[in-house]
């Protein structure tokens, strides 16, 4: 099933773990979170807040404020999943980070190719699955790649068949039957299903929408024809969400508009 292990780096030291505990206590005690900073980019929801880039630093934010994180300096975090797993790229290489609390992050796996990125991560009953792409020099996806973490806690690369190599996967979710992923093309989003994360078959298409988050058969994203905030089901329903018209879907009920996180009313 699995072809090889990702090279693994573990440096979650006692010092870092202690610092993390202190930071969590400070937030829990109230008043430690900075007033809402300008959010430049949001990777996704984690632990009820959003892992987001603000002023060049990764923070854990919500609509009321933000606290700094550690271990993600210089990272390009694209997506996060329940269980405190973040994915993206660092120095052009695809990287997976893990955390115990959302505040202290450490690289847990990376691919060795010079141009690659992980773009989606999802958790389910069968573990946590990461999908991404090898990239051309110009930054376009040329081959789909995957990694999975099961009970072993180690990240293992998976060979991938049937996922569209030229499209970046934007969302993946796990369920009792396996995995469902979405990728965005020029017409909308294409949905793929897999029992094992290896063999994928194309399913429904979601016309004129870029799917950012999949939960069961429900999705959230932005319209392609006018960038409106939208959500729907894989059965074909679609509705505009009651948040500002220019808001970008983040996931977890959060939206990003003009540097500010908001929630659906």
């Amino acid at each position: 099933m699995v072809d090889r292990r990702l090279c693994r780096r573990t440096f979650l030291s006692l010092t870092a773990a202690t610092a993390a505990t202190a930071a969590v206590s400070a937030v829990g005690g109230g008043g430690a979170a900075q007033a809402s900073p300008v959010i430049d980019r949001a990777a996704g929801p984690v632990g009820g807040r959003v892992l987001a880039l603000s002023g060049g630093a990764w923070v854990l934010a919500d609509e009321t404020g933000a606290v700094p994180t550690r271990g993600l300096d210089g990272a390009d975090v694209i997506a996060v999943a329940a269980g405190f797993v973040a994915v993206g790229a660092h120095g052009g290489k695809a990287v997976i980070w893990e955390s115990a609390d959302g505040l202290d992050w450490a690289a847990a796996g990376r691919r060795n190719e010079p141009h690659a990125v992980f773009t989606a991560v999802g958790a389910g009953p069968r573990g946590t699955l990461v999908l991404g792409s090898l990239l051309s020099e110009e930054g376009t996806p040329v081959r789909a790649v995957a990694a999975i973490r099961t009970q072993s806690r180690d990240w293992l690369t998976l060979p991938v068949r049937g996922l569209s190599d030229g499209l970046a996967v934007t969302a993946v979710t796990g369920h009792a039957d396996g995995w469902t992923a979405a990728a965005v093309d020029l017409h909308g989003s294409v949905v793929f299903h897999s029992p094992d994360g290896i063999a994928w078959t194309q399913g429904a298409t979601v016309p004129a929408s870029a799917v950012r988050e999949l939960v069961g058969d429900r999705w959230t994203g932005n319209a392609l024809d006018d960038t409106a905030p939208v959500r729907g089901t894989l059965a074909g329903d679609r509705e505009v969400v009651a948040v500002p018209r220019d808001a970008h879907a983040v996931g977890g009920g959060f939206w990003l508009t003009r540097g500010t996180l908001v929630r659906e009313r």
Binding site: R41, I78, V117, T119, G139, T140, A168, T170, V184, L186, A210, R212, G221, N222, L224, T227, H248, A249
Partner: peptide
Amino acid sequence: SAGFYVNKPGQHGAGTAMD
């Protein structure tokens, strides 16, 4: 156009691309 900012990774997601 087929899109400028698009909610996906890469240059479109950064709002720095046109199709």
